[in-house]
Simulated assay, not measured.
Amino acid sequence: MLAADKTVELPEKEKFHIYLLIGQSNMAGRGKVDPATNKAHPRVLKLDKAGNWVPATDPLHFDKPKIAGVGPGSGFGPVIAEASPEVTIGLIPAAVGGTPLSRWVKGGDLYERAVKLAKENQKKGVIKGAIWHQGEGDSSKPELYNSYQKRLAGMIADLRTDLGEPEMPFVMGELGEFFTREGAPTVNQALHGITKEVPATAVASSKGLPAKSDQVHFNADSEREFGKRYAAQMLKLQKQASEK
């Protein structure tokens, strides 16, 4: 296992596969970190706040340091790494808790920041996909959740264009079953709607994944399992692309 916070020497560009982690708090992760088991997979790295590639221990994100914890990236990275033993996986943790989709569409501050981070690291590796969890912040107002599908589909198209990756796989995660805000079902329907109209997209199911006591955030075990579901969908999209 790798020691945390130690900058790692990167492999050659073609063997460094990078994934963008974007969205709000359930992507950033609010699951409780267990120091006893907080070890990095030997071939999974994260981009830290200073822009260095270091072992991917939890928390991956640093959006809100006092509460950042286990997120889906923690389950996602190792599964992707095990599927390709010859490569190293790099996770760019760009999610920020409490953020609406308006900040993630082209021109929004978080979109532009994520694109900047990805572009800077395209010199070092190859962008292989993005995973997304967001929507809680858009599930209170009808004008937001009823337009969610169109706005997110537009963001995916812009992101692919701006990164020069027109077929980049994009996996979205459902809002939790426990999240009962009025627009949540519409947001989840929008995610599935996107898979029917936007190529190389998929949805990771949140079925059966419990929340923390706040009934807003997935707990640590749920987040790791969610990450494995994201990985399964990502690998499926990549397999489909390779068979074209």
Rank of each mutant, 00 (worst) to 15 (best):
E143M: 03
M234Q: 00
G135A: 03
N188S: 11
H217M: 07
G137A: 11
A184P: 13
G129D: 02
K196W: 03
G173S: 05
S140H: 13
L237F: 10
L117T: 08
I131H: 03
T180I: 13
T180S: 15
T99P: 04
V198G: 05
Q215A: 13
L209Q: 12
T99H: 10
K196N: 10
R160E: 13
A190T: 02
A204H: 01
G176N: 01
H192C: 11
L237D: 00
V203T: 02
A204T: 10
G173N: 09
F179N: 14
A220W: 07
A130G: 04
P166D: 12
V115C: 04
D221F: 02
K116E: 15
E174C: 06
I194C: 08
I131C: 07
D109V: 14
L117Y: 11
D214L: 10
P169K: 00
H192Q: 09
G129S: 02
K207W: 01
A200P: 01
Y148L: 04
L159N: 01
L175M: 09
L175K: 01
S139E: 02
S140M: 13
Q149G: 15
A153W: 00
G129L: 07
L163Y: 03
A114E: 06
I156L: 11
V198M: 12
Q122K: 06
S206F: 00
K207H: 02
G135C: 03
G154N: 05
E177T: 12
V187Y: 08
I127V: 13
G107T: 09
G108M: 11
